[in-house]
Simulated scan of single mutants.
Amino acid sequence: MEHLPKVRNGAVAKRMKKKAKKPTLLNMLPEDAIVEIVSQLVSSSSKPFADLYSLKSSCKAFFEASKDKMVKQRIALERDIFGLTWMATDKECMSVLKSCGDAGNAEANFMLALINIFKKGDINRGAEFLKRASSSDHKAALYMLNILCVRLQKHNPFAEGNSHTLKADQRIFDDYDQLKWCREKVLNAIRLVTWNNWQDNAVASVRQCNNSNCGIRGWDCRCFCSKDCEWNHEYYEFCKAT
């Protein structure tokens, strides 16, 4: 006679079903608390994308929290931009950057600007992303925006009525080390999005000042006769480093 599997009676089955539906500690937390946990992780992690993907695949609560605007806004893209490019296709990468940029992530808008300018050749669209990023006090985006102004020779970024840009640029040049940091960050980001296939050949077109005292090196910076000369010199340094 074949041994048939035992069938649990109704009471036992009911208890097992009730036990299976018992909420976990994570599910008992408010949604805002879970979002804050994920936000803290992606803003402090050295590999935010890898950690975020792990969280999303671990449970439904983390998966839903990862879609929140706060998470996209606070994710530290600058720490793991290589992780994004290696873990996703170009289309997926652009989708993530666009989503984070729309949420107010300054680094995402900065990267979108460089992609549009140096990879797609859309300078107007790139300038819009730079303005978004610089409005969040993103130093490298502000630096690139002014380099772009010099490159195009269309308008003076220090013109009257643009006092916000003037104030921010002066703050950058108060610290020459920060200026050099911005230059290196921008150049490294451009090399990343273009796979080292970009070079600016317009160095010779930069107007040189006739004032012999303009550009004299001081203790920790150079002294210029005007902001226009200051940015022309910086553009020269920028092009020379490409």
Rank of each mutant, 00 (worst) to 15 (best):
M1C: 03
H3Y: 08
H3M: 11
L4M: 10
P5Q: 13
K6P: 04
V7Q: 09
V7M: 08
R8Q: 08
G10M: 11
A11L: 12
A11P: 00
V12H: 05
K17S: 12
K19G: 00
A20P: 00
A20S: 11
K22W: 05
D32G: 05
V35E: 04
Q40D: 09
Q40K: 11
S44K: 13
S46R: 10
S46M: 09
K47W: 13
P48H: 08
A50W: 11
D51K: 03
D51S: 11
L52C: 02
Y53S: 10
S57H: 09
S58T: 14
C59H: 07
F62L: 06
F62H: 02
S66K: 07
D68V: 01
K72Y: 06
K72A: 02
K72E: 01
I75D: 01
L77E: 00
E78G: 00
E78S: 08
D80A: 05
I81Y: 07
F82R: 10
G83Y: 11
W86E: 15
W86V: 15
A88V: 08
E92M: 08
S99Y: 12
D102I: 15
D102V: 14
A103I: 09
G104R: 02
A108C: 07
N109H: 06
M111G: 01
L112M: 13
A113M: 02
L114K: 05
N116T: 14
K119R: 15
K120H: 14
D122A: 12
I123V: 15
I123M: 13
N124C: 06
N124P: 01
N124E: 15
G126M: 03
A127N: 09
E128D: 14
E128M: 12
F129W: 10
K131R: 14
A133Y: 06
A133E: 06
S134Y: 13
S134T: 15
S135G: 05
S135I: 03
K139R: 12
L145T: 02
I147D: 02
L148G: 06
L148N: 02
C149T: 03
C149V: 01
V150D: 01
K154H: 11
H155Q: 09
H155W: 12
N156Q: 08
P157T: 05
P157W: 02
F158P: 01
F158A: 06
A159G: 11
N162D: 13
S163E: 15
T165W: 00
L166K: 10
A168F: 11
D169T: 09
I172S: 00
F173C: 07
D174C: 06
Y176T: 07
Y176K: 05
Q178M: 14
K180I: 11
W181R: 05
K185V: 06
N188C: 09
A189I: 00
I190M: 07
R191D: 13
L192E: 08
V193M: 01
W195Q: 07
W195H: 10
N197E: 14
Q199E: 13
D200E: 10
N201A: 05
A204E: 15
V206T: 09
R207H: 10
C209I: 01
C209N: 04
N210Q: 08
N211H: 08
S212Y: 10
N213W: 03
C214N: 03
G215D: 06
W219T: 14
C221Q: 12
R222M: 04
F224H: 11
C225A: 05
S226L: 05
S226W: 10
K227E: 07
C229E: 09
E234Y: 00
Y235R: 04
E237I: 02
F238I: 01
A241K: 13
